[in-house]
Amino acid sequence: MMVFVYGGSGSGKSAFAEKRISELNNGNSLYYLATMHVFDNEDLERIKRHKKLRLGKGFITLEKSKNVGDILDELNKEKSDILLECMSNLVANEMFDEEIYKENDAGSNNDNIIGDDKIKLIFKKIKKDILKLKEGSENLVIVSNNIFEDGYTYDKSVEDYKRLLGDINRYITMISDEVWEVVAGIPIRVK
């Protein structure tokens, strides 16, 4: 079973994703695959809040900010349940060099412009990693962000990021069994 959970900032998507994978879990090892690259105290606070949410729910935390498909080599051969959080961080990490990304806070500096060919390669690579996770797990829940509705146009690197994340989200919904949008803590099933 593959489930996609989508929502905006502070929408309660994490809490729902944890609830959903716990419901699906039937005794398999339950992994929380964290993709956020830690930069500062604000990130640490966020992690603290998320860890508190997961406390006592039986999650084993794995941290991988890139190349998530490789995580399966570290796990046992038996099938497991994986909650990946979140795709928006993973795509940013794959797309922007971490050091430059750090210096420029949101990765919006023009130095970060990467060619269309490279973006295509990153798209292919992330798709491959997602498929690997799907095939290597019994239940996979992926969380992603709605970053698309503020109506602003940003510089090229951010626009490239928006397009790539949009494409990845669409790819995931295509291969998912369930798709949920979370609004003000309320899950709405859209597939």
Binding site: G7, G8, S9, G10, S11, G12, E42, D105, A106, S108, N146, I147, F148, E149, D150, G151, Y152, Y154, V158, K162, A184, G185
Partner: peptide, 24 residues
């Protein structure tokens, strides 16, 4: 207000997330 690119400004970022939590 939570469905956009994460604001660069820290206060804006925190306020945006808090509005989401209060909406929940």
């Amino acid at each position: 207000v939570g469905n956009g690119i994460v604001p660069v400004d820290k206060n804006e970022r925190l306020i945006r997330e808090k509005i989401g939590r209060v909406q929940c």
